[in-house]
Design a protein around this nucleic acid. Structure first.
Lengths: 350, 350
DNA sequence: AGAGTTTTTGCAAGCGCTTGCGAACTTTCC
DNA sequence: GGAAAGTTCGCAAGCGCTTGCAAAAACTCT
């Protein structure tokens, strides 16, 4: 049960140092010796104690992944992809969920990662300067997903461009009053500057391009969830002049918006167009038009960036484009259709 | 940067052993000394090297969570809940995704967890005898979620009862040809006996109760995903005498089923009733009637069971009931309605 | 064949913490 | 006030591995 280097050394008829070197492919061991050692280890079912080798080498061969919430499709997807990549590189992954500001504070306020991991992927959380310093002082390499930092590898979506494109599409369809439903700031960050804000910027840019004025009432924010989207949409429905379309900064919120519209007796897209963001697995089910941005690819890329960083590579800030995926939740506004009573030639979903 | 026990000891004017004891609340240190040490540690920003203390104590204060897939709502939810519980108990959590049989084999075939964790929560994977032995030989305490094992703490849903209840509801509504869409076996387990099978048993029991004969064509299996559900439902639509309702063993598959029905021009629930399983976050959005079973609660419970196991407690096998949540995807079959052309007084979703 | 090289191997000193055991110090009690 | 009993603390020996350095072995070459 407790097989140590020594048992292997004895069995292979060599010293422990040779065993250590042989098993880790360190040069300086003849191939016959190496083979003999490997066989001995194999036969004994030996596997080095990670604690001991960490203590001796100072490397943990472990990385941490930090997310604001676990139970969201987006994070499941990114974590999954990142984990695969990391596992292939021989790393274990530790998971940290920072759901509340307190948890976040406790996490960054103490050397939580010190000696536990060699690096960390931070997802959808914009770390502040002190937080990054704290990580650095704990000897952590860092990679960011959905955020950016000075001299830090990061991968994110071109949110401004994606927002602009999404809204352009709605405007091109003929909509003149387009609303924006975004993720409320505090949700992801108590330090501001969280990317979804950038989708708002893209939204505004598109309006400006089209010569339309923005209106406060048309910009609604709430928590990133079905309920949040529902609440935001409800607020839109009481606007003096209701919008005919909305760009929603997350599919989950868009689902909530669709739900409210349906309950309000409005048909999508006949009476209202909804355009989401993420290309959530379930978009196809409900027919939600959305902005796709290769979620899994981002997770994988973030993992690679972290591996690079741990190997002393140059940090890169990658911004990936999003693309429109048209489904059944968007159409020209009613006013523009020849036969304003008939739904468009799309199945009437919801 | 590299503060060790010694710096703290020096600063507090005591020996390293006292520091060690003071900081870990080990008895045998006077409260004044302890306080002094704590202050010194605080001022220095000291935090013990986990590798060193693991090596010395043999405990890792880490647990592993093993899941078949990460990017699924169910697992995000259970992992999230379990993680919270474990963190509160002072444990870190390592994540392992065993997506393919090969990964599974490699994981259990080598002492992967040896010295990395003190225990493991295995979710929705039925470990075989050798696998459990392997874990035991690696010194791992084990807790199961959605599976069972001899002498092992486990929490799962009463799948047979839940399946029975679900189908009873459909039968009570007046359906006479009720289909079952289940999760294909290989998906979760290359060792058979995976719980979803039990939902099939419940389905059959309900049929027997009602004096109905089961038919192979009405029992469809596919992968646990939207696409899988869609495929299974498609197969149902070509049955000689099509069913009027289906109990689907997972909400995600049910979503796929709904999608196919919609595309086939069938309206739910007017033409077809669908009853899912899990009470997925998005059920409310699409109006899916389903069986709820407190997913987060199960994750939490599994974590507690593991903590118990690591503290030498008695293993308990907990089976929790599921409850029907009625939404808009179920209704009496068309044949039973007075006005067979008008939809029921439910909003026509999908 | 023997000196000079290069390769392979072993010794032993850590890595930073925990803990059994005995020494030193306090408190208690007669 | 002193011995007995109880506390608090420090010493030093690990925990199981890695690695610099030197010794041994295996080759090279003249």
């Amino acid at each position: 049960m407790v097989i140590s280097v020594e048992s292997v050394a004895e069995r292979a008829g060599v010293s422990v140092s040779t065993v250590s070197r042989a098993l880790r492919s360190v040069p300086g061991v003849s191939s016959k010796t190496r083979k003999r050692v490997q066989e001995a280890a194999e036969e004994l079912g030996y596997s080095a104690s990670p604690a001991a080798s960490r203590l001796a080498t100072g490397r943990t061969m472990t990385v941490a992944i930090v997310v604001p919430v676990l139970a969201k499709w987006f994070f499941g997807k990114t974590i999954g992809a990142a984990t695969q990549e990391l596992r292939d590189a021989g790393y274990d992954v530790l998971l940290y969920e920072l759901a509340t500001p307190e948890q976040r504070e406790r996490f960054f306020g103490s050397p939580r990662l010190h000696g536990r991991s060699d690096g960390v992927i931070i997802m959808a959380l914009q770390p502040g300067k002190k937080e990054l310093e704290s990580l650095a002082s704990q000897g952590q390499a860092v990679a960011l997903l959905g955020a950016e930092g000075p001299g830090i590898g990061s991968v994110s979506v071109d949110n401004v461009g994606a927002g602009r494109d999404a809204v352009r599409h709605l405007l091109n369809l003929g909509h003149e009053r387009v609303a924006f439903i975004g993720i409320r700031d505090e949700e992801n960050s108590n330090l501001g500057g969280v990317p979804p804000r950038q989708r708002l910027i893209g939204y505004r840019e598109a309006l400006v391009e089209a010569g339309l004025a923005r209106e406060d009432i048309l910009e609604q924010f709430d928590e990133n969830s079905v309920a949040g989207g529902a609440a935001a949409m409800s607020r839109l429905l009481v606007a003096a002049r209701a919008p005919t379309a909305a760009f929603v900064a997350s599919d989950e919120m868009a689902f909530g918006a669709l739900m409210v519209l349906r309950r309000a007796g409005l048909e999508v897209p006949r009476d209202f167009s909804v355009l989401g963001f993420d290309n959530h697995e379930l978009c196809e089910v409900v027919g939600l038009t959305t902005m796709d941005h290769d979620v899994a690819g981002q997770g994988q890329e973030a993992a690679r960036f972290l591996l690079d960083a741990m190997n002393g590579g140059q940090p890169k800030a990658l911004s990936r484009p999003a693309r429109l995926v048209v489904r059944e939740s968007t159409a020209p506004p009613r006013s523009l259709r020849k036969n304003s009573t008939a739904p468009p030639d799309l199945p009437a979903t919801f």
